[in-house]
Design a protein around this nucleic acid. Structure first.
Lengths: 337, 337
DNA sequence: CGGCTGACTGGAAGCGCTTCCAGTAGTTCC
DNA sequence: GGAACTACTGGAAGCGCTTCCAGTCAGCCG
């Protein structure tokens, strides 16, 4: 009755109860060799009876391994994380981690203070490895993590240079596929709304667009750059229409911007896909909710998270995995049949 | 030249360099009293020169405090977490934690294995406190956390009973407000599409609906229950139209379901808001993307996360905060002017 | 039958920190 | 001038675990 309430059992108590030494108990817990089956059974029994759970801090101290990995999102837009994209990544990461004993730590570093905090966490080696997401331009974080000799896996790629370990979607290939689809369906006056050009994603997708246009011998009507937001997409679309009222297709390089573009097209009285065909990129849930439903490039976001985590676990366990580029594919809906 | 590369400095080395004992160095680091200013300065200098960062495991072991808090999401739908809702909660949590030294651990427990893992993490006291999200029906997790004598803050409320510490949005008030708005705009044949009735959210919103109808002396046309998904909302809307072709308003108790309802209404040839007015709930980004844009109840999701984290920090620091219900408010857009 | 394995075992030394406590000075007060 | 403070200081004892290492005790070979 409330007697055993307060203190949690320690390994010593388990050992005592099992009638063995602490070393033996530890070996049983950690499943290492050199334990007789009788000792093993006794310890396991004691563990169960006492409800023993190892103290992670003590273990971490003794082994110099924290037992956790960090997912760091460093960005200057505090709301970026609200994008469902991240939710999917996390679901993937979580799934991959579920089969290990690693716990996920999450740190969003948007403010200056947040970034300092992230740096402290990194330096303190609270995590055995780190996953970096949404690097835009040059992020000092990457270099820091590198210099700490911590395993680092980058999701996406930074704008310049190529990290040793990363997982990325085939953005360039996706951009090409999207554009090819528009061309194949007979569109000729094709414009693009590209995302921020200080991100590798933004650049790569647009590069795919330009490649496909060049291959087809077409001149892009015009491209507008927006900031990956719905409002930005709408504004860009409006600008495009103002300058090139006769365009017949738009490749909006993210679904969110595509949604904005659809809204602007509707406001301008254009029918989709009748007057203008629209292809997005990402295949987020909104893509199905827009009117008309959005033809888009699917990128395997959950897989991205999963593979990042897997790669990191591999690195921590001493393997040397290869960078990974995940395929994207076209999903045809109504906005560009 | 790679000399100091490998080992990180310890407190002993800092003390040595500063010419004081380890105790003094520790006191300086932790900013406790009883340190002369000369000693303090010497230690601070040594810390800087050595780039010393305390080892969190050692500290955790000595203080019996992990320095982290856990956000646990236990649900049976593995994709629920992809909902932007969670992203916003996390942004809020992160913001509140930024001013502390606590680190956020995130655990999604959808599978059986995930739940066991969550339980292990809880039992091992890897976290100093826990935030629980998306409890549906009765979740054993809550009782477990309670029994561990860990501070627990619940986001939303479980279906039955009331936790000691929770933060919730005023779902019932929101449901009332939404309904009152429909009534005030002259609608009389009002139906509702309620969410899962095994969640407190679902029940509370619908209760608000019923209250407002009763106060106005109106009989609900009919209510259909869906599962908070777009498809579910569309199906429910179709059923409603089948049975009550003359309804003139719908309160869809989540934006996602509202989006589905809009789609079904359009498919049935009804104009919104001409024939049927629609009010949603949540004020997610989709609410602005639907056509027509959705009148909805805004709930402060980010604030929910922030307040949960604040409350938890308070609990950990020994305060006894009060449960909190955050206000919701009506956002009028096109679907129900 | 002596000596050698090989399978186990338990003692003990840490991991890097916090914190209690006994102690040393320097001050103040009667 | 001595007692009683106050303001610091450093030694030492942990926190709960892992892991090295020196043993012990069978069994088995020649």
């Amino acid at each position: 009755m409330g007697a055993q309430a307060n203190r949690r059992p320690t390994l010593d108590e388990v050992a005592l109860r099992a009638g063995v030494s602490r070393s033996v108990a530890s070996r049983v817990i950690n499943n290492t060799r050199d334990v007789s089956s009788t000792a093993r059974a006794a310890v396991q029994k004691a563990v169960k009876e006492l409800g023993y759970v190892p103290n992670p801090s003590a273990r971490a101290l003794a082994t110099a391994q924290s037992g956790s990995v960090l997912l760091a999102v460093s960005h200057d837009d505090p709301n970026l994380f609200a994008d469902p994209f991240f939710g999917h990544v996390i679901v993937g990461v979580n799934a991959a981690l579920e089969r290990t004993d690693l716990v996920l730590m999450l740190l969003l570093a948007d403010t200056e203070r947040g970034k300092e905090r992230l740096e402290r966490v990194l330096r303190s080696r609270r995590a055995d490895g780190i996953m970096l997401l949404a690097l835009h331009g040059e992020d000092p974080l990457y270099d820091l993590a590198q210099s700490l000799e911590l395993p680092v896996v980058v999701g996406g790629r930074p704008l310049h240079g190529e990290p040793a370990w990363y997982v990325d979607a085939d953005n360039r290939g996706g951009g090409r596929t999207a554009t090819e689809h528009l061309i194949a369906s007979g569109r000729r006056r094709i414009a693009a709304i590209s995302g921020r050009q200080d991100t590798q994603v933004g650049v790569a997708r647009h590069q795919g667009f330009r490649e496909a246009m060049a291959v087809a011998g077409l001149e892009p009507v015009r491209s507008e750059t927006a900031d990956f937001t719905e409002a930005g997409g709408a504004a860009a679309m409006t600008r495009l229409l103002g300058r090139h009222p006769d365009l017949d297709a738009v490749f909006a390089e993210s679904d969110t911007m595509a949604a904005g573009a659809l809204r602007a097209l509707k406001a301008a009285g254009r029918s989709v896909p009748g007057d203008v065909a629209v292809v997005g990129f990402d295949d987020l849930p909104i893509a199905q909710g827009t009117d008309p439903a959005l033809t888009t490039i699917h990128q395997p976001v959950q897989a991205l998270g999963r593979e990042m985590a897997k790669m990191l676990v591999g690195l921590i366990e001493g393997e040397r995995p290869s960078p990974l580029i995940l395929p994207t594919h076209l999903v045809i809906r109504e906005s560009a049949p």
